[in-house]
Every structure is written in structure tokens, then in C-alpha cells.
Design a protein around this nucleic acid. Structure first.
Length: 862
DNA sequence: GCAAGGTC
């Protein structure tokens, strides 16, 4: 049997179907899907991995991790490894109690251990245990092995790791490597009939990248985290990609802070081309505005002079009319970066876009979403794709036109690779088939695809120069005269600015001018989309990781909001590293690493040399950092306090700060004077940000709360403030008391101490009836009761609109509702006769939904 | 409790 190992399941399926004489049989080894088929009478099996199946980490016995902690590094036999430079040859912990595996008193060792962590040995440990088990199981039976992972550095490394697993159980089977860069019959057949050897040097270049990232990341993250340990869940991370990315954001913020705005003056004139008599008399649509030909007056006196010159004038003369039509070329096909950028402009963050794209891809709606390529391969049948998606009524007329026009030609981007096609739709979807956010992204991708096949749009630009007593005004108009691709792809479109029809020499009405003082703006903060583009330009991260790097910066609270601004903590971390360990804050580290990896791949250097060089460099940087720990500690502490500050304590005057509860992990506001001052305020669930403005009602500080998937709202921190008070509402009668022949009211109320809202029977002590309520949203009672459990229905009105709710968590109707919804959705999509894959995916989702819901309501019931 | 890179 010939075993073919691919990087992902998807590739295993495709290769099997392209090489097999007949349709491959899908099978499983343990839980891993495999595909069996025959080639010239020989049995072949393909198995897809899940990317990297091994992961480097410090050798477990030598890096002390007991109690989940970062305690220290043991030095084997208490002698220092030969690699460690002489300056570090005397372990600082030797003077204290010796380090043993059983764990002794470790206090104060953590920071001291860092210089040794720099030189700690690294091993490859299993990461995907289940896949490894399946792989080994197959490998035992294999007569020969083909490594068919992706044709790039990481692919070579993934293949090499897979091979080391295989050779543990089958060291003798011959091994070869298939290199392909597209899933077409020709390409795959060619790759498998021209097998080569695994490129050990290339794999080793990738492995150096792994080791260097781990060492720098672990050492600097531990340094920043331990220098002022702020409790669990407060990791201060650093890394080869994330820290330079943070530095970009911080640098932009510094530019903004250093920016000195300059005053300028803008003059705008009001005009009207309506004839006082004649056919168009009285039609108001002919009024328009135009700025002075000097767009910005830097000198107030000059602006004033221009105003004086036009003062009292009632007419303007049309001096010249210039018309220029320009073509707007249709956009080029989507790759990962351009998709994330475009989606970012539509309010989907890059990380969310990739999650949605992954799900659309798995359900068969779009092609593989992680690509650099921006040129459709000739093997892609563009016409077929257009036909497929023309079933969506929103695209149908446009598709019809496209197909009627004759053979399709597509735009081409600058990047042409052949691994995957650019992102395009692979199935027809309507808004009913998908949740709104997923459809939004699908719609963007489908429309972009159609746009790449369309004609250019033509915009006619008109520039009219008007003269009033020697002062010139410039009116500009833009009109879309040929829609072209704009008919299907309206994203980022400017509104038409139409000017009335004018003739040179014509006199039109001038209705006065206004002069406004403005100020120059500092450079804009990065949007997430722009930052992704900037990272790509600098070679930071890859198409598959950039979004997660940005997300990481958000979760460690180095950055906030979109457009992105750094927190005080983010700036402090960046400054500290830039001052004492500047190597990590610059994108050049990545560029240098790339060069070194090329050297390894070409056989000019070894991995051992490159990694040791990097360790020595890190050792120097750490040596710069260690003597300044006090300074770094204070800087970080001040920054954290500044980020947490919400206002002054009304009792003692010290700072009120947003804090995390140790017990519940929830947020609350506490006084910096604690334990001397015990002032606290509860906070609702969600992301909390401090606000500058005080509560207009009571003068206490306010915070901005963003609950999960909701719009932000501003609340006063004082629960007793009028703005937070909610009257108790009678929402109905208690069904339990009623059944027992008693009468009791159910009352919705709010606990000011915990901010929790709930419905409780006034006879609660006896009947125990109580239901939870959402923490916010306006609550209204109804006359209706739930048909399933008899609890009163209430209406909750949030920013997303009102919704009716049965508050009973254990209501038997809850589960039924969900399974009905899921089942009807399954039927609907099946009826639409789209791709078979899609139907399978939807019914899978339908089968899954009720069971997950069951689990959550079950645990809530206890 | 670390990184960044694959992929789910």
C-alpha cells in the first residue's frame, strides 16, 4: 500500500479523486478521514493532517513547569550546558536551594531563571495526538510513503514532522515527495510521476523559525509578565510579529500626539443656475455649492480679503468648463488580504472575517480562503461559476447580461501563485440560507467575483470655474455615466455630485459665501484593514496569521477600539522593549530571520548555528533588560493604573479603577485606597471602557459597556443614580401558586448590588418560582403566557429591536423551538438543490444544534 | 500562564 500524506483533509480528498482510477472510498482510521483508491492495480491511501502535528517546546523535565508555573530552568546535573556563555556559567539559583524535580521552595527564582531559559533545550512534542495515532497506524502497513504537503517552507516542515512520526513505526519504507501547486489533473499527475526527495534543508529552515519564535516569545513574555506579576490572566506578551505590529500602532499614536494642528480657512459659495424666467424657472435643484479656488487659506487676512471681495455680489460668471471622463477599472480577484481589507471597510474585523470565511468554505459556499493568488487559473470555468450563482435573484439580471456579452475575461491582480485560486463563490446562496453576517461576507465575495468579470465604470468629472469680482470658485461634479462593474459592486462608492448644465460665459446667481475656520488633522489611526496591509508590506506574519496577531493584541489589552489606538499599557510595553531590547520591536528581525532561513535552505548555514546566534542575541537583549527591571515594573504599573482609571473616589478622593474580581473573574470598580477604603461599584457583563464625561444626572463617572454582540451603551457607575433605577414591574401571575389555588404576582426587579435582573413570585419563599432576565434592555410586560410552561411572556427591547421572551430557563418549549427552526432550515436548503456538500453540512448543523442547547439548559437547571 | 505557524 502506498501512503500519501497531505497537509489538510481537503487536499487528501482532492488528490484521491484526481489520481484514482475510480471514485475513492472514504474511510476512517480512528476518527481521521482517509481515502482509499487504486492506481494501476496498487492500493493507495491518502490522509490529511491538520497543519503542524508536532510542536516545539522546552524539554519538559528541564524547564520547570510545576503548578502550571514558570518557575525556572533546571540545569542538567547542576552543571551548565556547554552552550551557555561564560558570563552566565554560574547559575544564580545555585546559592539558594538546589533545583529538584520534586519541587522545593522556588520563591524568587522565576526572573533569575530567564537567562537560562534563553539556552534551554527544545524538543518537538506531539500536538495532534489523534492524527499521529492514525498516521502511525497506516504507516505500519505502508510499502511506500509519499509526502504531499503544501509546496512551501511550512509544508516541507509539516511533511518532515509527519515523516519522523512514520519512521518511528516503519523505518524502512521508501519515501518520496510530491510537489504540486494546483489541484488540477495535469499538475497532480505530473507531481506524482516526477517524485523528488524531501528537502531537509528547507524543513530545517522552518524549524529554526519555530525555535527562534518560541525562545524569544517565551523569554520576553515571561519577563514582562513576571516583572510585575498582576495575577493570573494578565499575561504581557511579546513576540517576533506581535511586538513590531504593536510598535507600528504606538508610533502612529506618537505622531498624532506630537502633531501640532494648524489653522486654515475654507470659503464656500452658494450658487444657483436657475433662470428667473424660462422653462426651468423655479426648479430648486439647480442650486449648488462650490469652494473657493484656494481650497485652504493658511492666512486669515487673505481669506478675509477674498470674503470682502465677493461681499455684496449677486452674480457669478462661468469662466470655464472642463469635462473629463475617467475609467474606473473593475477590482482584481480577492486573496486573503484584500478580502480582509474589503470586509473591514464593511464592519467585519479581519479575525471575524476569517472565522466566517472558514465556515463558508467548510460548508462549500466559497473556495479556499487562505490564498495569496490574485489571478484566476485557466482551469477555473468562470462561466460555470456565473451560472451557479445566477440562481440568487439579486445577481440574476447581472449574470444574464455577463453571459450574453460573450466569452468572459477577468481582471488580474499583481500576485500570481498557483497553489489555490483567488477566493470565489462555489455555490448559490440566498439571504434565507445563512445567518446575516455569513451572508454579508458571501455577498461581498460573490459580488466581487462578478465585478472582476465586468466592464469598467465611467465617471464624468466636471470642473467649473466661476468668477466673482476676480475671485475664483471651483465647482466639481462627478457623475457615473456608465455603471459597468459598479452595478454589482457598490462597495466604497462615492455619491454622485451632479452640477447643473452650465455654459461658458453664463451669468448665474451668487447667494453669498461663508468662511469657516478649520484645523489640520493628525495622521489617522490604523483601521484593522490598513494595519493588515501594512503588516503585509513589512513581511510581518502571514496571510493566515495576521488577523490572529491583531486579535491577540486586543486580548492582552495592548490596543483598543477600531480605528486602533494603543492603551497606556501597550505604549509602556513598547517603550520598555524599544529602550532595552530593541531587536524585538522592529520588523527587521523578521527580515533577518527570512535571510537566515534562506541560508539554511540553501545549505550555507545550519539550523544549530542560526538558532544559537539568535539565542546569543536574545541573551544580550535580556542582559540589557534585567538591570532595569525596577524601571520597567514602575512603567507598567503606572500604565495599568492609567488604563483602569475611571474617576475619583467620592469617599477618600483616591482613584477609582476598573478591576477584575479574583473569585468570579467578573469586573467591578474599586478604590485604589483599598483596603483602607472599601468603596466598590458593580459592573454589568461585557467589555468595560472608561469615559471622560461625568454623569449629567449625578456627576459620578460613567463607563461604556459593550455586551457580547451588542451595541455599546454608556452607564453611570453608581447603581443608585436615577439613570440606573428601574421600577419593579408586575409581569403576570405565578403559575405554580395558581395551580395550588393561590393568587400571587410575579414581579420583575433588579438587585442594585449585583445589577442582576430577575422575575420572582411575591410568594417566592413558599413556591420558589423565579426566572432570570437579560441584564439590560427595556422590559415590558405582556398579557400572554408561554404555551409550554405557563410563565408570563415579556418583551425586551434592546438596540437590536424588541423580542418576546419566555423567561423560564427550563421551559420545554425552548428546545422544541430550536429543533423546529433547524429542521425547517435543513429542508429549505435541500429543496434549493445546491451542492450536495452544502446540504450535508446544513443537516449536520441541524442535528447538532438541539443537543448543544440541551447540554446548556441541563446544566442551568441544576 | 509564553510565540507563530499550519488548519478545524
Amino acid at each position: 500500500m502506498k501512503l500519501v500524506v497531505t497537509e489538510k483533509n481537503d487536499a487528501a480528498t482532492k488528490i484521491a479523486s484526481l489520481l484514482g482510477a475510480s471514485k475513492p472510498k472514504a474511510d476512517k482510521v480512528y476518527s481521521t478521514p482517509i481515502y482509499r483508491f487504486e492506481v494501476d492495480g496498487e492500493e493507495w491511501v491518502t490522509i490529511g493532517l491538520r497543519g503542524h502535528i508536532l510542536e516545539p517546546d522546552f524539554t519538559p523535565n528541564l524547564v520547570y513547569k510545576k503548578r502550571g508555573g514558570w518557575q525556572g530552568v533546571t540545569v542538567e546535573g547542576e552543571t551548565v550546558p556547554a552552550d551557555v556563555p561564560a558570563s552566565l556559567a554560574k547559575p544564580p539559583f545555585k546559592k539558594k536551594k538546589p533545583f529538584t524535580e520534586d519541587g522545593v521552595e522556588l520563591k524568587g527564582w522565576k526572573m533569575d531563571a530567564l537567562p537560562y531559559l534563553v539556552y534551554a533545550p527544545i524538543e518537538k512534542l506531539p500536538k495532534e495526538k489523534e492524527i499521529i495515532r492514525s498516521l502511525k497506524n497506516l504507516a505500519k502497513k505502508a510499502d511506500s510513503i509519499v509526502i504531499a504537503t503544501d509546496f512551501d517552507r511550512e509544508g516541507e516542515l509539516i511533511g518532515s514532522d509527519a515523516l519522523s512520526c512514520i519512521q518511528e513505526v516503519n523505518p524502512t519504507a521508501p519515501v518520496s515527495r510530491a510537489r504540486y501547486s494546483a489541484f488540477t489533473k495535469e499538475e497532480i499527475t505530473h507531481a506524482f510521476s516526477n517524485l523528488v526527495e524531501l528537502d531537509v534543508n528547507l524543513a530545517s529552515a522552518g524549524a529554526s523559525r519555530q525555535d527562534i519564535d518560541l525562545i524569544w516569545g517565551a523569554v520576553l513574555t515571561r519577563y514582562l509578565t513576571l516583572v510585575k506579576f498582576a495575577g493570573y490572566g494578565n499575561v504581557r506578551s511579546s513576540g517576533r510579529v506581535q511586538t513590531p505590529t504593536l510598535a507600528l500602532i504606538v508610533a502612529r499614536e506618537r505622531e498624532r500626539l506630537a502633531f501640532v494642528p494648524e489653522d486654515y480657512w475654507v470659503i464656500k459659495g452658494a450658487f444657483d443656475a436657475a433662470e428667473k424666467t424660462g422653462p426651468t424657472a423655479g426648479e430648486g435643484a439647480l442650486a449648488f455649492e462650490a469652494p473657493h479656488a484656494t481650497a485652504r487659506f493658511k492666512d486669515e487676512a487673505q481669506a478675509k480679503a477674498a470674503m470682502t471681495a465677493v461681499e455684496g455680489a449677486t452674480s457669478a460668471k462661468v469662466l470655464s468648463i472642463e469635462k473629463r471622463s475617467r475609467k474606473q477599472q473593475p477590482p482584481v480577484p480577492f486573496n486573503t488580504t484584500s478580502l480582509m481589507t474589503a470586509a473591514s471597510a464593511e464592519g467585519l474585523s479581519p479575525a471575524r472575517t476569517m472565522r466566517l470565511a472558514e465556515s463558508l468554505y467548510m460548508d462549500g459556499y466559497i473556495s479556499y480562503p487562505r490564498v495569496d493568488n490574485t489571478v484566476y487559473p485557466s482551469s477555473l470555468d468562470l462561466e460555470e461559476v456565473v451560472k451557479t450563482i445566477s440562481g440568487n435573484p439579486a445577481y440574476a439580471p447581472f449574470c444574464k447580461e455577463l453571459l450574453a456579452r460573450g466569452p468572459l475575461t477577468a481582471t488580474r491582480g499583481k500576485k500570481e501563485t498557483t497553489d489555490h485560486p483567488p477566493i470565489y463563490p462555489t455555490a448559490m446562496v440566498t439571504p434565507d440560507d445563512l445567518p446575516p453576517a455569513e451572508y454579508k461576507l458571501y455577498n461581498l465575495i460573490a459580488r466581487r467575483f462578478l465585478a472582476t468579470l465586468s466592464e469598467a465604470a465611467v465617471v464624468e468629472g466636471t470642473k467649473v470655474t466661476l468668477d466673482i469680482s476676480g475671485e475664483h470658485f471651483a465647482a466639481k461634479g462627478d457623475v457615473l455615466v456608465h455603471e459597468g462593474y459598479r452595478a454589482i459592486y457598490p462597495y466604497g462608492m462615492k455619491k454622485d455630485e451632479q452640477l447643473p448644465a452650465l455654459a461658458e460665459g453664463q451669468q448665474i446667481a451668487f447667494n453669498g459665501a461663508t468662511c469657516t475656520k478649520k484645523q489640520t488633522e493628525p495622521p489617522a489611526r490604523y483601521s484593522q484593514g490598513k494595519l493588515i496591509q501594512e503588516m503585509e508590506k513589512l513581511g510581518l506574519g502571514t496571510k493566515s496569521t495576521r488577523h490572529s496577531i491583531i486579535e491577540r493584541l486586543y486580548t492582552v489589552k495592548y490596543i483598543q477600539n477600531d480605528p486602533i489606538e494603543p492603551s497606556q499599557l501597550g505604549m509602556a510595553v513598547c517603550d520598555a522593549l524599544d529602550k532595552f531590547a530593541p531587536h524585538i520591536t522592529h520588523s527587521e528581525m523578521t527580515a533577518e530571520l527570512e535571510a537566515e532561513m534562506d541560508n539554511i535552505a540553501e545549505g550555507q548555514k545550519t539550523k544549530a548555528d542560526v538558532v544559537m546566534n539568535s539565542r546569543n542575541l536574545l541573551s544580550e537583549q535580556l542582559a540589557g533588560l534585567m538591570p532595569h527591571s525596577e524601571e520597567v515594573k514602575d512603567a507598567l504599573a503606572d500604565a495599568v493604573a492609567a488604563d483602569a482609571y475611571v474617576g475619583k473616589c467620592p469617599k477618600c478622593g483616591k482613584d477609582l479603577q476598573i478591576r477584575a474580581s479574583q473569585k468570579t473573574r467578573g469586573m467591578f470598580i474599586g478604590c485604589a485606597g483599598w483596603p483602607d477604603c472599601d468603596v466598590t461599584y458593580p459592573l454589568p457583563k461585557g467589555k468595560i471602557e472608561s469615559m471622560e464625561e461625568l454623569c449629567p444626572t449625578c456627576g459620578m463617572p460613567q463607563v461604556k459597556v459593550t455586551a457580547f454582540r451588542s451595541k455599546p451603551r454608556v452607564i453611570c457607575i453608581d447603581p443608585n443614580c436615577e439613570t440606573n433605577k428601574e421600577p419593579d414591574v408586575v409581569v403576570g401571575e405565578c403559575p405554580v401558586c395558581k395551580a395550588a389555588g393561590k393568587q400571587a404576582k410575579l414581579i420583575a426587579q433588579k438587585n442594585p448590588r449585583t445589577l442582576k435582573r430577575f422575575i420572582r413570585c411575591e410568594n417566592h419563599d413558599e413556591c420558589g418560582v423565579g426566572y432570570p432576565l437579560p441584564q439590560y434592555g427595556k422590559l415590558t410586560a405582556t398579557d400572554e403566557v408561554c404555551e409550554h410552561c405557563g410563565a408570563p411572556l415579556v418583551i425586551v427591547t434592546t438596540a437590536r429591536g424588541p423580542w418576546k421572551l419566555c423567561p423560564n430557563f427550563d421551559c420545554p418549549g425552548k428546545e422544541q423551538d430550536d429543533s423546529e427552526k433547524a429542521a425547517s432550515k435543513g429542508k429549505k436548503t435541500a429543496a434549493k438543490k445546491t451542492a450536495a456538500k452544502k446540504t450535508a453540512a446544513t443537516s449536520k448543523a441541524a442535528a447538532k444544534k438541539p443537543s448543544t442547547r440541551k447540554a446548556s439548559s441541563g446544566s442551568a437547571g441544576k
